[in-house]
């Protein structure tokens, strides 16, 4: 089975066109852009759509409790954001006006903790941070992804795009070779998706847990035998922006369920 998978990847790799060459891998046609949801079985789609049984809601619920809590923080999140953060997650990553840095939801939450809550930074992979991002993302569920890519964000968009089209790892594959060029095709038992991030944080069967988009990117890089970047790495935040721009118009589905 592993040999079959390797062979399939090598075929993809061999057929791939050079991104920098005269015949680059094209973008997905706007009218063809679909969420990873469309590549799931009916049973998995039903689990995502079940607002009770979708296990991602365990994290959303915990995030709501943390949002209201004053434990370990000088004031609760809700003391400022009394009406919640409806629609906010759909606009991330975004430029922080004070520092000019591009930050994602995880970064923004930790910034609030430092600047307004006199609290420790939550580790990127902590269940607390994942619960808070899940709760916040859920408040944008069903809203179209809508990130700002001009001004100071432009260079981050371009860095993210560059990462997406660059071949890497032992398999010498770029994100684009699977997700722009080969989506809809089979790789072992899976159908290759278009690689959008609109479901994240998402509950993945493979993880048996909720997880962040950076965890997913690390898995992709590991899958092509490339060195994954650290959680929260600026390049991954840039990729996050590029993915969001690439998925513009798709609805945010968090907590989505994925394979």
């Amino acid at each position: 089975m592993i040999r079959i998978a390797l062979a399939a990847l090598i075929i993809i790799s061999a057929c791939g066109r050079q991104s920098a060459g005269p015949d680059p891998i094209p973008e997905i046609n706007a009218e063809d852009v679909v969420s990873g949801y469309s590549f799931l079985t009916a049973e998995t789609q039903a689990l995502q759509d079940d607002d009770f049984a979708n296990p991602g809601f365990l994290w959303v619920d915990r995030g709501e409790r943390l949002f209201e809590s004053t434990q370990g923080v000088s004031q609760s999140c809700s003391s400022c954001h009394s009406d919640g953060l409806v629609g906010a997650a759909a606009t991330f990553p975004k430029i922080d006006p004070a520092s000019g840095a591009l930050i994602n939801l995880e970064g923004r939450i930790n910034m609030c903790r430092k600047d307004h809550q006199q609290a420790d930074q939550l580790p990127y992979t902590s269940d607390e941070l994942l619960s808070l991002t899940s709760y916040t993302a859920h408040q944008s569920r069903g809203m179209p992804i809508n990130v700002d890519t001009i001004g100071q964000a432009a260079k981050h968009l371009s860095a993210g795009e560059d990462y997406f089209f660059t071949r890497r790892g032992q398999f010498n594959l770029s994100c684009a070779q699977c997700h722009n060029q080969s989506w809809g095709q089979k790789l072992r038992g899976d159908t290759i998706s278009q690689g959008h991030g609109n479901g994240f944080p998402a509950y993945r069967f493979e993880w048996q847990s909720m997880g962040s988009l950076h965890q997913r990117l690390r898995d992709c890089d590991t899958g092509i035998r490339a060195e994954p970047l650290p959680y929260g790495d600026q390049t991954y935040v840039d990729v996050e922006l590029y993915l969001a721009a690439r998925a513009a118009g798709l609805k945010l589905e968090s907590p989505a369920v994925r394979r």
């Binding site: 089975m1 790789l187 072992r188 038992g189 899976d190 290759i192 590991t222 899958g223 394979r259």
Partner: peptide, 9 residues
Amino acid sequence: VTLAACIIM
């Protein structure tokens, strides 16, 4: 039970 596309070790 189908097998996943990418093997993460």
